[in-house]
Write a protein that binds this DNA or RNA. Structure first.
Lengths: 259, 259
DNA sequence: ATAATAGTGTCTCTGAGACAGTATGAC
DNA sequence: GTCATACTGTCTCAGAGACACTATTAT
């Protein structure tokens, strides 16, 4: 960007109208000012078949009609109290359930990212266990899971490919200093499942011992008392404690791998 | 939020109009749909007099006329190619210079945060050396620096107090795993200045030795060959290397202090 | 010389990496 | 018993915390 034009920009002289705020608000017409197109999009990740996938929906409307894109849409100002509500509403429409992890990713904006004109989308990043949403998704014909390693082959609407890449980086980074991948697992899970989830996301093996140390130090989990057979010795089943926040560690895993 | 209402929400039946995307775009009228009020705000931090301060401007217009708030405003869709441009344009208006650090913080949205109605603001987080912008700011009567420890006493427009709190948390967190505070220093700086900046931001003393280890390991800086007298032994002056990205460390400082 | 600030050497301590060793359960 | 998977013990190693030590310069 050429920033010199900004340096030369002078402060606009402000026409101060002297009237009460009350009266000002009464007369205020939100449609007076040209406004960008505002949407909300979700990057929902899930694990299955040793793959990390992202949920896509086929666009029913223009622009990019028929192209795959992220599940999202316009804010419903009567239903939604914030863009978080919009994100949740759209996710529930497509998956039938509330994802156990939802955080704001980043807002993408620009003159050229939407053919209709200047646009802005607040992107959210979510995790879910595949089994918790698979039945609902299979009932909808216009939704599919895209394995992230096929991202480059798939043409996507708008800048959704770029948004997914940002979300992937965030997921990988957070996996190095938290146990975020548990939110991709079923309610009750084994340490081996958590290890596999972590390894799929990071794309490389980790030390089980390091995972166990963190698991215990986090204080986030409790033993269900149950165990699960997987062909050999039975593995203990854990669950997340009620109302416990995610624990952030002060060191990263895999700190040899350059950032 | 009551999420049951979302679970009950059914997918709207989509009226698929069969016409070419080209024709669709030609007929597209962005003002057809109700849209939230969209703005961009900046949280600009700076250090002076052993204090971390944030830049505020007195609002010239309704709503909150006369109240202090963050420097920001509407997107100019002809000037700005993205909200980053909007953020920069507003910062240059108020400070006269481009800040050496600018990153997106978060987007705040909601039905009630602006009395005019449903609104959304993309907040940006910036750092600058006080000396680089002080002359310009002093020439503008409607701008001031608010020391962050006085945040609770100051009434601010909209949810700007909350936004500043988020930015502060981000700054403190990043200071623990990077050398972000250098962006609050002049072009040429001493290690002691960097240490003091870090300590002001974190609100506690750090080990100079740890800072030096990180400083050397980061590869971000070069010796200017010059040095600066401060009353006793002269301190070496360093500067940031041209075009070098910020280095992220794999461990945090102060990891005793609970997250 | 003294005081003050700049910078070094080196020990401890935490937690990740590595990997050998033990436990459990299906067959 | 064997074999596969689950789990533990314990060593090494990087880098933060702590703090004593040396270096430089104005007075």
């Amino acid at each position: 960007m050429d920033i010199r034009k900004f340096v030369l920009t002078t402060v606009l002289s402000v026409h101060i109208v002297m009237r009460s705020e009350e009266r000002y608000l009464k007369d205020y017409d939100a449609s007076r000012f040209a406004s960008p197109i505002v949407t909300v999009d979700n990057v929902l990740f899930s694990l299955d078949n040793n793959e990390l996938s992202v949920l896509l929906v086929k666009r029913a409307n223009h622009p990019y009609q028929g192209t795959w894109g992220l599940p999202g849409g316009f804010i419903d100002m009567t239903l939604d109290e914030s863009t978080r509500d919009t994100a949740l509403r759209k996710l529930v429409e497509k998956t039938g359930v509330i994802p156990p992890w939802l955080e704001q990713l980043e807002t993408f904006s620009g003159k050229y990212r939407d053919p209709r004109g200047w646009s802005l989308t607040t992107a959210w990043f979510a995790l879910i266990a595949r089994t918790d949403c698979q039945p609902h998704i299979e009932s909808v014909s216009d939704a599919k899971w895209l394995p992230t390693h096929q991202l480059t082959q798939q043409t996507l609407a708008f800048d959704h490919g770029e948004i997914i890449t940002h979300a992937l980086n965030r997921l990988r980074q957070k996996t190095r200093y938290s146990l975020l991948p548990v939110y991709c697992l079923a309610e009750e899970f084994t340490l081996t499942q958590l290890q596999e989830a972590t390894e799929i996301i990071l794309g490389q093996a980790i030390q089980r011992k390091s995972l166990i140390r963190r698991f215990e130090a986090s204080g986030m989990f409790e033993d269900t008392g149950k165990s699960k057979a997987t062909g050999a010795r039975k593995a203990r089943l854990y669950r997340r404690k009620e109302g416990v926040d995610i624990h952030l560690f002060s060191r990263n895993l895999l700190n040899d791998t350059a950032e």
